[in-house]
């Protein structure tokens, strides 16, 4: 309840700014139309008109909401015009890529922590991989995989994984190295083997770090899946909705796809957060 007031305040502020910007940005078109018709529009007419255009520069919030209502609630989810359908396409690539990326990230981190050669060689490459703009590399991945006969979900998931493995590597390396000298000495006094030290000390100690990374990773996965939908000229998915919206000047469609993506990202992060809380609580790491 306490956090509701600040949140609503911010939402209200955004709405005011948004409506203001919509009036300001769309009024030019209204004035042009009026000039062509030779009429002198009143201020109230301008304001009303800027919020009801078919292809506004900036759609007003209620236009986006009504579009969302129309494409989320009113359409059957199997319809190609349903935003839920497109969100699911993107979500499935996101989740697959997230699983790939997390798995790869954990494996790399385990290697880095246990093998000096990997420690020296892998990390610089992992960092370098993230400095390449994903927009540049995504089309190449799609084209190369397409030439190998792989299409659809997997190339998009691959781009998702490419973005999401990195936070997992960084977090897991830190987490697996988090046990102090004393805790490692304790394992030595038991003459514990390296695998025993890993399973009983390093891995459980890394859990809080892993979950923090997963939250970043799943949001990155979603970005990857959307980016993966742009260069293919894909006809399905949130990325495709944004792209076709920009081809045809359908700003309302772009904005509703954007909002859908934001809601999706927030939900995914929230779900990881809930799993984090339950897991850490069961492990005794959170109170």
């Amino acid at each position: 309840m306490k956090s509701l007031v600040p949140i609503l305040t911010v939402v209200a502020a955004i709405m005011v700014l948004w409506y203001g910007a919509a009036v300001w940005m769309n009024s030019q078109w209204t004035l042009d139309q009026a000039a062509r018709a030779g009429t002198e529009p009143s201020f109230s007419f301008i304001v009303a008109d800027t919020m009801a255009q078919d292809r506004p520069k900036l759609p007003a919030p209620h236009q986006v909401i009504s579009e969302l209502y129309d494409t989320v609630i009113d359409k059957k989810i199997t319809s190609k015009r349903s935003l839920v359908f497109h969100a699911w396409i993107t979500l499935s690539a996101t989740l697959l890529g997230f699983v790939f990326g997390t798995f790869a990230g954990i494996l790399l981190a385990v290697g880095i922590v246990h093998n000096r050669a990997m420690d020296m060689s892998v990390m610089p490459w992992a960092i370098a991989s993230q400095t390449i703009p994903i927009l540049a590399i995504a089309p190449m991945i799609i084209v190369v995989m397409n030439s190998m006969g792989i299409q659809g979900l997997v190339p998009k998931a691959f781009i998702s994984a490419y973005l999401s493995f990195f936070p997992v590597v960084v977090g897991m390396v830190k987490g697996l190295r988090s046990p102090g000298a004393m805790q490692l000495d304790l394992m030595r006094t038991y003459h514990a083997s390296q695998p025993e030290t890993f399973w009983k000390l390093r891995l459980p100690a890394s859990m809080p770090y892993l979950f923090t990374s997963l939250k970043v990773g799943i949001a990155a996965s979603l970005v990857g899946a959307i980016v993966g939908e742009l260069p293919t000229g894909a006809v399905r998915g949130l990325g495709a909705r944004m792209l076709s919206g920009s081809y045809y000047g359908q700003t309302i469609q772009i904005w509703s796809a954007l909002i859908m993506a934001a809601v999706l990202a927030a939900s995914l992060v929230a779900i990881v957060g809930i799993i984090q809380r339950i897991t850490l609580k069961r492990m005794g790491l959170a109170q």
């Binding site: 805790q183 304790l186 100690a205 005794g284």
Partner: peptide, 9 residues
């Protein structure tokens, strides 16, 4: 050891 160093989990 100087500190108990129990595993919190």
């Amino acid at each position: 050891f100087q500190a108990a160093g129990l595993y919190p989990w």
